[in-house]
Design a protein around this nucleic acid. Structure first.
Length: 620
DNA sequence: TCCACGGGCGCG
DNA sequence: AAAGCGCGCCCGTGGA
């Protein structure tokens, strides 16, 4: 039965009955769980509002007009029961804006994500889930019109439908979850979604003036580089065909640029480079830098791409992400990628420049609110530590246990040099040290890099690369066999998992067809990709699991003690928080402690290190 | 004018 | 045969 709680002036009809908020609360008082959904005037909880909130189960659904009834009357209920959501993060943000903080959550959307990670053509929407698990066809056509239409009869019916099937979906999902042994990772996701909702809701503060300064610098850099590139073309006989015979003037008689080359066009750049007799097949950084000495234009093109990237991705436009109401940036988080990591978009705060002077400057534009500091913790060498833990390779473990620099230790062994010489330049590439090469090897070979790619990356012959690879794996034989085990497991089963206790599952959606077409070149390619992804996924994914656990533990500590701290960002293996100044020193120690303890759930054989900092801006 | 796609590159 | 993994965003391109 559908009950509507709100304005009595609406015409009563056969589709629903009127009820009261007391009756609704009374109905759920003794239930273990409630299905909850909200309809809102838009996507942003800071500038939009909840229109109605629905509470329901299989038998009864209550659609509550929050303009007529205070949503706060539901606070106690929503904060004490297990709440079933479809895509909890969306509703949580709106509930947070109404000062309601659910504690126990089951998200049918996240469960479906966990069940289908890596599968192609999966469907995660409520309509698909209701069909898949309940055989019910939901009508979602009205969805986009609710704001305009208001709480009409059909809107009330539609809204009620969204809280009528989640129990059944959950029941059926849990059977699958149990079968695939995904309980632990599902619990993790259902917990951490609260933290992600809070992060999105709270947002991050950017200093717009400082950002503008940087943007102006990069913009003028690009303009100058463009002129310099034009100049090179004008003075290069081989490129004379790009120079028009007559100078053009615009409507006002001013001279326009002599050239009409778009330096952002890869196709045009490639054509020009080829006209210079330099034979490359693309104008990416590798190819340009490899042929830097062949023509002066090469290094200019390199500079141009770098600066242009800064202008387009991290220029003025970026300021439009600042929310007019809160003056903060409310990014959005995709909670479960194929390995278990998260991604951040609109804007992608995972890709804010960090390297070099400019990177530092750009990151320093992210600041805490008045009276607060940014306190951040950064796991050091997480993936390398995970490789040590999983492979139990003696050398790898010893290096970490002795507190040595792993790259240097491995480097000395791979190249048969003294550990004091690892920062010497290699004979095969100018300006590159042995340790640099070793880093490429450690991160590359661990995930299936071939001798061809290694040769290409560090500019040596394929034979030389082959020898280095063989030597490397002879030095760390257990790493070799562990990675091979992963690769073979993935190829054999079409799926791979992260470490205990989470054992997150990644399935390879194209595995079945690759197996059926064995022998074909498509299949060979696909299985190669599966093999390499299988080597990487447990490492990258376990790292993701650890960060999520740490976020949960950090948030729980904050809540339990009512600390003046908010988590603002999680980037790969770092957690950034905004902490009241007077508490920063103490918090730094607590954060450090929680992060280490969280990682220990998976890393048991070697120490875990976290680098914690207090700052008035986001620092690396 | 819109959309999908691929190259390229920012981060780990 | 093809030969590091994981992302999101920008632009130009080409077809509708």
């Amino acid at each position: 039965m559908i009950y509507f709680i709100g304005n009595k002036e609406l015409v009563e009809n056969e589709f629903y009955e009127f009820s009261t908020i007391d009756k609704c609360i009374d109905y759920f008082k003794d239930k273990e769980s409630i299905e909850v959904d909200t309809e809102t005037t838009g996507f942003d909880p800071h500038t939009c509002k909840i229109i109605c909130i629905q509470l329901g189960d299989k038998e009864n659904q209550f659609v509550i007009d929050v303009n007529a009834v205070s949503i706060l009357l539901l606070k106690e209920l929503l904060e004490s029961k297990l709440i079933l959501f479809q895509n909890a993060k969306f509703d949580l943000r709106f509930l947070y804006s109404n000062d309601i903080y659910p504690t126990k959550i089951y998200d049918t959307f996240l469960a479906e994500c966990v069940l289908t990670t890596g599968l192609e053509d999966r469907e995660l929407g409520l309509k698909a889930l209701a069909w898949k698990y309940c055989g019910v066809l939901l009508d979602k056509e009205i969805r986009g019109q609710i704001y305009r239409e208001g709480l009409s009869t059909r809107v009330i019916q539609y809204a009620a439908n969204d809280v009528a099937y989640l129990h059944l979906i959950r029941e059926k999902q849990l059977v699958e979850i149990e079968k695939l042994e995904l309980n632990a990772v599902l619990d993790l996701e259902n917990e951490v979604v609260k933290v992600f909702a809070k992060m999105e809701f709270h947002g991050i503060l950017l200093d717009p003036d400082k950002w503008m300064d940087v943007a102006k610098t990069t913009e003028s850099n690009v303009i100058n580089l463009q002129l310099e590139l034009d100049e090179i073309v004008l003075n290069e006989p081989k490129l004379s065909k790009y120079v028009p015979k007559y100078k053009q003037t615009d409507l006002f008689g001013f001279e326009k640029r002599d050239l009409d080359i778009n330096w952002s066009s890869n196709a045009q750049k490639l054509k020009i480079v080829k006209d210079l007799g330099i034979n490359i097949d693309s104008v990416d950084e590798r190819n340009l830098s490899k042929n830097k000495r062949k023509h002066i234009i090469m290094s200019k093109l390199l500079d141009y791409s770098k600066q242009a990237k800064l202008v387009t991705s991290f220029g003025k436009k970026f300021l439009s992400f600042i929310n007019p109401k809160t003056q903060r940036i409310h990014f959005s988080i995709w909670q479960i990628l194929s390995t278990g990591r998260i991604s951040v978009s609109e804007p992608n705060l995972n890709q804010i420049p960090s390297k070099g002077e400019l990177g530092k400057k750009i990151r320093s534009c992210f600041i805490p609110k008045e009276g607060y500091s940014i306190v951040g913790g950064d796991f050091s060498g997480m993936e390398l530590r995970l490789i040590a833990e999983f492979s139990q390779d003696k050398l790898w473990l010893d290096a970490f246990n002795a507190g040595q620099d792993l790259h240097s230790v491995l480097c000395a062994k791979t190249f048969d040099i003294s550990i004091t010489d690892v920062k010497q330049e290699t004979p095969f590439k100018a300006g590159v040290t042995y340790r640099d090469v070793q880093k490429t090897i450690n991160f590359g070979l661990a995930y299936g890099m071939s001798k061809f790619k290694l040769a290409d990356t560090i500019d040596i012959s394929v034979d030389q690369a082959d020898k280095i690879i063989k030597k490397f794996f002879a030095v760390v034989p257990q790493v070799n066999s562990f990675l091979n085990l992963l690769g073979n497991t993935g190829k054999k089963n079409g799926q791979i998992r992260t470490a205990r206790p989470f054992r997150r599952l990644r399935q390879f959606g194209n595995w079945q067809s690759a197996m059926e077409n064995q022998g074909s070149s498509d299949s060979f390619k696909a299985l190669g990709e599966i093999e390499r992804a299988s080597k990487n996924s447990p490492i990258q994914g376990s790292n993701g699991d650890i960060i999520k656990l740490a976020l949960i533990n950090v948030q729980n500590r904050i809540d339990a003690n009512n600390y003046p701290v908010t988590i603002i960002l999680a980037v790969y293996d770092e957690i950034q928080t905004e902490c009241r100044d007077d508490f920063a020193e103490e918090w730094k120690l607590i954060l450090n402690d929680i992060m280490i303890e969280s990682a220990k759930v998976i890393i048991k054989s070697i120490p875990v290190e976290v680098d914690c900092k207090i700052s008035k801006s986001w620092t690396k």
